[in-house]
């Protein structure tokens, strides 16, 4: 089943298309990473999915509800948790009162269990909270009614590394319990670590929509070579090598061809050391954010 189905979703703000024909889907029971730098259009997509913004054209279905059908979408929200990037809590309420407020709005079957993992100072007014404490309160609020789908916008922003790990682990457990998790991030390592699939958005357009594994294998190999002599770029570099960086005897590049071809090429040189590995997602990610004409096919 599809938890989120986005079809040609477009949102214009005046002349600017914050989302331009965005199309992707999120399966039930998966962790989907929505990746892009700040300003790429991630938050716009999320706010469209929640009916906070009206699409200029195209549409999306969230848990079966068309986002243009206000009534259906409102009813569906009982099964959705939302952790926004900016947490607009009522500052004069304490943490307890804030959670009581959200309990009245959407229920709180899991409040106590969540507070053992994420523990903001509940007796203090939220306006005195640190960024990390606000985020923890937001996490509890987003999961406390045990929703089927949780949409998170930069969920680890402001959390200390320990709590970030805790959230990643928690997300993983939720997925195993059958929940669908959609989260946006500009932090690649985070997405690579927890997500099953990823959508990459650039200037309002989806430039990749893949499983993480596929994305990694299709994106070639990351290679470091140390030669005995300074590298002669003209002789060494072939068409299959991209992102080539040469520093004296060492060369680092991404190889997009067959590995056999690379080895046959390398034996012509006096190799001192060699390392071939899968590229990190951020290496791949860089490709999508270089000039349009160098975007690799996926």
């Amino acid at each position: 089943m599809t938890a989120i189905q986005v079809d040609d979703l477009t949102k214009q703000f005046g002349e600017v298309a914050a989302n331009d024909g965005v199309t992707f889907d999120v399966e039930s029971g998966e962790i989907f990473g929505y990746l892009g730098p700040n300003g790429a259009g991630k938050t716009t997509t999320i706010r469209l999915l929640l009916g906070l913004l009206k699409p200029t054209s195209g549409t999306a279905h969230v848990l079966g509800a068309d986002i243009r059908d206000r009534k259906a979408l409102t009813a569906t929200k009982a099964d959705i948790g939302y952790l926004p990037d900016t947490l607009g809590f009522d500052g004069r309420l304490t943490g307890h009162q804030t959670l009581d407020y959200f309990a009245r709005l959407h229920g709180d079957e899991r409040r106590e269990e969540l507070l053992e993992l994420f523990d903001p100072p509940l007796d203090r007014a939220v306006e005195t909270y640190s960024e990390g404490n606000r985020r923890m309160l937001g996490i509890v609020q987003a999961f406390m009614h045990d929703p089927k789908l949780v949409i998170m916008d930069e969920p680890t922003a402001g959390l200390d590394p320990l709590k970030q790990d805790r959230l990643h682990l928690f997300i993983e457990e939720e997925r195993q319990a059958g929940k669908t998790l959609f989260f946006s991030s500009h932090t690649l390592s985070e997405v690579q670590r927890v997500c099953d699939r990823v959508g990459i958005i650039r200037n309002g357009r989806i430039v990749a929509h893949e499983e993480i594994e596929t994305l990694l294998t299709q994106s070639g190999k990351e290679v470091w070579v140390h030669l005995a002599e300074p590298v002669n770029e003209k002789q060494f570099v072939t068409d299959e090598m991209i992102d080539v960086e040469v520093v004296e005897n060492a060369v680092h590049f991404t190889y997009t061809g067959h590995i056999q071809g690379l080895l046959e090429h390398l034996v012509q040189f006096d190799n001192q050391d060699l390392e071939i590995g899968n590229p990190q997602l951020d290496t791949i990610f860089k490709h999508y954010y270089r000039e349009e004409d160098t975007i690799p096919e996926t």
């Binding site: 929640l50 009982a78 939302y82």
Partner: peptide
């Protein structure tokens, strides 16, 4: 303005 409405309207409550 304070983005409180984002949180409010993410609940099953109509405008």
């Amino acid at each position: 303005e304070r983005r409180k409405m984002d949180l409010t309207l993410s609940n099953p409550v109509s405008r």
